[in-house]
Design a protein around this nucleic acid. Sequence first.
DNA 1: TTGCTCCTCACGTCACGTGAGGTGGC
DNA 2: TTGCTCCTCACGTCACGTGAGGTGGC
Lengths: 239, 239
Amino acid sequence: MPWTITELADLAEVSRRTVRHYNAIGLLAPPTRRPNGYKLYDDAHLTRLLQIKRLRGLGFTLARITDLQDGAVEPIEAVRSLDAELAGTVERLRTARAELRAILRDGTSTDLPTGFDPTALGDQLSEADRSFVVVMSRVLGPEPRRAYADLLRNPPNDPASREFEHLRPDAGERTRRDLVDRMVPVVRNIHATFPALREMHAGSPHGAGFAKASIESTKRDLYNAAQCHVMRDIAAALA
Amino acid sequence: MPWTITELADLAEVSRRTVRHYNAIGLLAPPTRRPNGYKLYDDAHLTRLLQIKRLRGLGFTLARITDLQDGAVEPIEAVRSLDAELAGTVERLRTARAELRAILRDGTSTDLPTGFDPTALGDQLSEADRSFVVVMSRVLGPEPRRAYADLLRNPPNDPASREFEHLRPDAGERTRRDLVDRMVPVVRNIHATFPALREMHAGSPHGAGFAKASIESTKRDLYNAAQCHVMRDIAAALA
DNA sequence: TTGCTCCTCACGTCACGTGAGGTGGC
DNA sequence: TTGCTCCTCACGTCACGTGAGGTGGC
């Protein structure tokens, strides 16, 4: 009394579909058939099926198991390389878990690029600022990037900068010019402290022109007309 | 100057296909279009894309990320459950690696069911015996199964059993009867030591009849005609 | 005119899960 | 006759990869 597919599947504790699949791809030898077409499996199928199940449980792919069956790969080599692969996977999962736990601990999803310490300045950055930082971090060359990160760690805590943050879009020319006059020395100071920022577009991975245009359009996206105007005027005054 | 798909993909270090995929499933907002249909992305797309990339790197599925975006799940809950899931995965991989290292160490692929210690008896079992053990372990109830495993750990080391192993298929009646006569006391002894084996089919998970038929047909598969004949005669003598 | 980029299908991947539609066995 | 099992397609899953075929931009 050989076994039906359900009996075989039950004995091996796999699904019937799994048995059919292994048949279809030739991993399990074709069973004999009853006159009506029903498949009949024997003990050789069972042992083979259990072997496949075990190998799958260890992490081998069906293709790998086929290779092992055909003698196309050395078992020891296959085991060794799978072990190495699993080691890599475990490592990646561990670091991912460490990050997840950090998120749970801090309650925040530290989404700023590395080098821009989020816990130090995360709270004081507006949404617009965060977006801007992200773009800068992707568009700048390494030198200006570092300088910019340093600047963000020690932001100029002056009244003019704070006023700039809340500048109304419809601010008049006098208001703007007054603000520009007070911010120019601040920016000059920044440039003295972080000289790399004077040539902000130098070394950009996609070219200075691309960096400049990207930053320009991001500014227009994130800051209002008056703020953009003020930034242009400051740049002109410093040129 | 907003970005083309290639520029966006390069800035985020993902493939263009990935960007298109996120657009297609609505994970990334539809970009604006140039008159010719070319897509144009801005800083909002970039920050979103980087956020998705980060979440993916942590192990979130795109569906989960969509839920998070829609506010359909609590971020903390999502993080907690992902962490638990990853913990489980890490554990499974660790045990798999331990098995892999055991295989590398022993040079063998310990494919016998648990309870049937392979290192103790692996070498002395023939291929047929191994198959038979596998079937028995799947077909017997817990009690006979344990008894059978115990028996295999302490096999009867008598000349008759070894002779049985090498019995030729065309062995004559006299040879067979002689062998039966010498094996009956051995088997009687086994039954005395492991009483559960006297009711071998008791408690079989798929029924006694199924177990009996399965074992019977496996015997015919693995042992030759003379050996089957001998086994039948021994059973008859013991009944 | 020639490459290069862009676009939209649409199939392939991996190991099966899950019906769909039809037939044999008690 | 009624469930139950069996069979063979064949689509769906997941996150894209990889062309295929056609068009715009320098």
